[in-house]
């Protein structure tokens, strides 16, 4: 009898919860952390949807896609937030994502047309260094200098892969030569962004691969304007972070509403100072003062998703060959 009572209790409890629909959102770790945009976006959407938003944080963007693939159609996830343009072709190829109607008037430096994914924030990759020093203004000048740089491994980190694509987009067939020139500048290669940025902050290297928006964090959150991003003549490769909904979701309408919410003024207003990236829709009053002070590249580079994916193997082999010496 006791067991029966217990079982009934559990059943009732489950039903009570089931009255409020649950929207499961998978994202990368730093999005859902206390300092990321997750908590505010969760509260904001819950206030209007009458649902319970549950964020699950998984590693970084690449780990996130791998997780969704592993779970396949059984996945509990309704929405995935935090893949990027480098992963987009592979994400689409899984066939797990459903088309979305969500859209907005994007303030992106490139036109955006995609049936399956919406962009929610973006940034330019850049080398970040200390203000006041004489800095190189191109990859070639960097390679000729004796500055030390820390980069991330393109086999385990999205910024690392971004740099690979940046060199490829800017130099094409000359990419190998550029990497050979950079080889003696590269102090070391880290598995992820945080290790590299940590090494830079510790003074181990002169420059670190990060984003043009990184200095905005130091200005706004720490009142420290000693970090600057280096503008490069070749232009800067973009990372556009994207979100999509899963075809197997049991909450397709909520998922669609959530994607639209992500593009709305409220969520877009949260992103710059929590994710330290540019919003895809500029807020009416413009961005915070700290974002006005930072470098804005003249030229945006971005390979089309399919092309980027096709080039990845070759670019990786070039990178490995040039640096493995």
């Amino acid at each position: 009898m006791k067991h029966l009572a217990l079982a009934t209790g559990c059943l009732l409890a489950t039903q009570a919860v089931a009255e409020t629909p649950v929207l499961n959102v998978y994202t990368y770790e730093s999005f859902t952390s206390e300092w990321g945009p997750g908590p505010q976006i969760e509260a904001g959407f819950e206030a209007q949807c009458g649902c319970d938003v549950v964020f699950t944080g998984v590693g970084d963007g690449a780990a996130l896609l791998s997780r969704v693939r592993l779970e396949g159609a059984r996945s509990e996830a309704d929405v995935v937030v935090g893949l990027d343009t480098a992963l987009m072709a592979r994400a689409r190829a899984t066939g797990l994502f459903a088309p979305t109607e969500a859209s907005a008037e994007y303030d992106l430096p490139i036109p955006w047309e995609d049936p399956d994914f919406v962009p929610f924030d973006w940034g330019y990759f850049a080398f970040v260094g200390e203000a006041g020093a004489e800095h190189p203004t191109s990859f070639e000048a960097l390679a000729a200098s004796d500055l030390s740089i820390v980069i991330q491994d393109p086999r385990s980190s999205t910024p690392g892969l971004g740099l690979l694509m940046w060199v490829k987009a800017a130099y094409g067939d000359r990419a190998s030569e550029i990497w050979e020139g950079l080889a003696d500048n590269i102090l070391t290669v880290t598995p992820g962004w945080s290790e590299a940025y940590g090494l830079f902050l510790d003074g181990e290297a002169d420059l670190v691969l990060s984003y043009t928006t990184s200095p905005a964090y130091h200005i706004i959150a720490e009142g420290d304007d000693s970090k600057v991003a280096l503008p490069f003549e070749e232009g800067h490769y973009m990372q556009v972070e994207i979100a999509g909904r899963l075809a197997a979701s049991d909450q397709p309408e909520l998922a669609e509403q959530f994607l639209q919410y992500l593009l709305g003024a409220e969520a877009q207003g949260v992103l710059p100072e929590t994710n330290w990236m540019y919003p895809v829709v500029l807020p009416e009053g413009g961005l915070a003062e700290g974002f006005q002070q930072i470098v804005t590249p003249d030229k945006a580079l971005l390979l089309e998703a399919g092309e980027a994916d096709a080039l990845r193997e070759e670019a990786l082999a070039e990178w490995r060959a040039a640096l493995a010496r």
Partner: peptide, 18 residues
């Protein structure tokens, strides 16, 4: 990876991770 200084210091574990 961090102390090895680059892809020459790739271990099996990194290859598995990748």
């Amino acid at each position: 990876l961090i102390l090895g200084g680059g892809p020459a210091a790739t271990t099996l574990e990194l290859a598995i991770y990748q």
